[in-house]
Computed example of a mutant assay.
Amino acid sequence: MPYASYTYQGADRVGRVDGDTLIPLDLASLGSADALQAATELSAQAVAVSDVHLRPVIPRPDKIICVGLNYHAHVGETGRELPTYPVMFTKFAGSLIGPHDDIVLPPESAQVDYEAELTVVIGRAGRRIPVEKAYDHVLGYTVANDITMRDYQYKTHQWLQGKTWDNSTPLGPYLVLPQEVDLTAAGVRTRLGDRVLQESDTSKLIFDIPALISTISQFTTLLPGDLILTGTPGGVGYRRDPQLFLQDGDVITVEVDGVGTLTNRVVSEQP
């Protein structure tokens, strides 16, 4: 059973998704596996999904750690060698938007790109987590579109300024629990309208989920609600010939089979 973070009648809530209905929980936010397990459903306050505004699954994570160059095809299209250690960067919580919110094109960037990514949500805190214990710390999974301003990303060798623009990164639509999805070879794709731009599966990850959790927790304590964006497949717009960037009026969809689908309209920022 998936879970959602949403706003209804001005109040931020958490709920269990039951078909087209959300059943609220007496829980302030998603993140802690123990808190979710102990939460009580408030069935009398159920609402239709169509009547709420879906928020990012984890609206204010302590950490958002992203992995670059983690699919073989994506490494190949960049012309780089396979990494022997995960390439990592961070995002800020202020970069997150809901699963159906508009992606706003800032006037400063002419190279706004897409990246479909499976996202891991941490449910139990840990430091120096062994690979064999990594899944014990996973609350579940969701989907992100790692919107990237390429002309800013490549201003320096550090990627921060191209990766964490305010209100740019769709996350959701729901949290899917580990026992409810098979990620052995789950499809990961991006569509622009009817055109498929990215198509791969999670068996092509260079560093798998346990390896990422173990590696990251060597240098920082992972906390409930922390996000790990696991990387994007080949087919990004910057590496195409001709290059392809998001434009006003586009509708971009990213999906991970068994986890969820994000569909967002692209609009120019209004003065």
Rank of each mutant, 00 (worst) to 15 (best):
Q45N: 10
R60S: 14
P59D: 10
P24D: 09
D51Q: 06
I64H: 01
D51P: 05
V49P: 04
A44S: 13
A48G: 12
P24E: 05
A39N: 02
K63Y: 05
P61S: 01
A28T: 12
A33I: 14
R60M: 15
V52A: 06
P56S: 01
P59L: 02
I65A: 07
I58C: 08
I58Q: 02
I64Q: 01
D26A: 14
A28L: 07
A48L: 12
A33R: 11
K63R: 11
A38F: 06
L42G: 03
A38G: 11
L25A: 08
D26C: 11
D34L: 15
K63C: 07
R60Y: 11
A39S: 13
I64E: 00
D51N: 06
D34H: 09
P59S: 07
E41K: 11
A28K: 10
A28V: 08
S32W: 13
A48K: 14
D62L: 11
C66D: 00
L30Q: 03
L36A: 12
K63V: 03
A38D: 15
D34Y: 07
S29K: 08
R55A: 09
S29V: 15
D62R: 12
G31V: 14
Q37R: 12
D51M: 05
S29Y: 09
S29M: 09
S29H: 13
P59N: 04
I58W: 03
A44I: 08
L42V: 11
